Computed example of a mutant assay.
Amino acid sequence: MDQLLAIRTFVRIAEAGSFGKAADQLNIPRSTASKLIQDLEQMLGTRLVQRTTRQATVTPEGAAYYERALRLLGDLDEMDAEARRTRAQPKGRLRVDIGSAHANFALIPALPDFQARYPDIDLRLGVSDRPADMVGEGIDCVIRGGELAESTLIARKLCELDMVVCAHRKYIDRHGMPAHPSDLEDKHRVSAYFSSLTGRPFSLRFERDGETVEVQPKGNIAVNESTAHLTTLVSGLGIGQTFRYQLRPWLERGEVVEVLPGWRLARHSVYAMYPQTRHMNAKARVFIDWVVEVFGALDARERA
C-alpha cells in the first residue's frame, strides 16, 4: 500500500463526500481509491469512512484522523516547496481559535487585508471564549488574553489593552454614580463575566494611591461570552468591566459613561499561542506576523 497516497485519498473523500469525486480529483480509478481506504483502515485497525450507495461520511475516528492528516500533508507540501526553492504564497487550510469579542471587534474587521495578502489561505476561524483543545481539534493558533496557565504552548504577546468600568447612562440615571468600588458590592447591580471552567464570576480589582479594593460581583446577570457581556453593558443591565477599545463608539456618543475613573485597572494582555513544533508551518507564521500588526494598533503601551 502507498500510505501517502492512501492518506491523500482519504482526505479527498472526507472533503468531497464521495469515493468517485475523490478518485476523479486524484485521477485514479475508483476501485483503487476504495482499495486504498480499505488497506489504510486495516492497517490502523479502525473504520475511517462510513460508506453508503450515494455518499461517504467520516466516522468520529476518521474526523480526528482527518485533522492530523491535513496538517501532515500541509507540512509535506511546504517541505517539497522549500526543497524546490520556490517562493509560492502560503496556501491551504489554517485553523485559528479566538475569543468572541476580539474576533468581532478586532480580527474579523481586519480580515480583508489578510485575504488580499494571502488569497490562497483557507482560514477556519473558531470563535469561542471556551478553552480549545489544539491537538484534538487540529488548531494551528489560538488568540487568548489574561493570565497564562502553565502550558507547553509557545506564547507571543500581541498587546496590552486598557480596561474600563462603565455603565449605560440610563442605568446611572436610575441608580446614581458609585463613589467607591465598595459601592458595587451592595448598592449597585454588576453585569458580571463568569468563567466557563469554574462557573464563578471574575472579580473586579481596583487600585489607587496604594489602596487596593477587590470586588466580587453581585447581581442578577452574568454571562460567559465576551460579546454578550458587552451587550449587557450597553443595554443598561448594570455596571461592568470591558475593553476600552471595544466600548469607544458608545463612550464617544455619550451613551455609556466611565465609572470610578480615578481608580486604576490592570491592563489585559493578549497572546497568540501555538504548539512547540520544530518548524512552524508557513501559513501559521504569516498569520501570526499579521495578527501582531492588527493588535499592535490597539496596544495601550504604544498610546501611553
Rank of each mutant, 00 (worst) to 15 (best):
H180M: 02
P181Q: 03
P181A: 01
P181D: 04
S182F: 00
S182P: 00
L184I: 11
L184P: 03
L184T: 04
E185S: 12
E185K: 05
D186V: 06
D186P: 00
D186N: 10
D186A: 02
K187E: 03
H188V: 09
R189N: 11
R189W: 11
V190S: 11
V190D: 01
V190T: 08
S191A: 15
S191Q: 08
S191C: 14
A192F: 01
Y193S: 04
Y193W: 12
Y193H: 12
F194M: 15
S195N: 05
S195T: 03
S196K: 13
S196A: 15
S196C: 14
S196G: 15
L197E: 11
L197M: 01
T198N: 03
T198Q: 11
G199K: 07
G199N: 03
P201A: 10
P201S: 09
F202I: 00
F202H: 07
F202E: 02
F202V: 03
F202M: 09
S203C: 10
S203P: 15
S203M: 13
L204I: 15
L204K: 10
L204M: 15
R205T: 14
R205H: 11
R205W: 05
F206M: 08
F206G: 00
E207Y: 00
R208A: 12
R208N: 09
D209W: 09
D209V: 00
D209T: 02
D209N: 09
G210F: 15
G210C: 09
G210P: 07
G210Q: 13
G210V: 14
E211T: 14
T212M: 14
T212P: 01
V213Y: 03
V213F: 05
V213N: 02
E214C: 04
E214N: 06
E214F: 02
V215R: 04
Q216W: 14
P217Y: 08
K218R: 12
G219L: 06
G219A: 03
N220K: 01
N220A: 02
I221R: 03
A222N: 06
A222S: 15
A222D: 05
V223G: 04
N224E: 07
N224H: 11
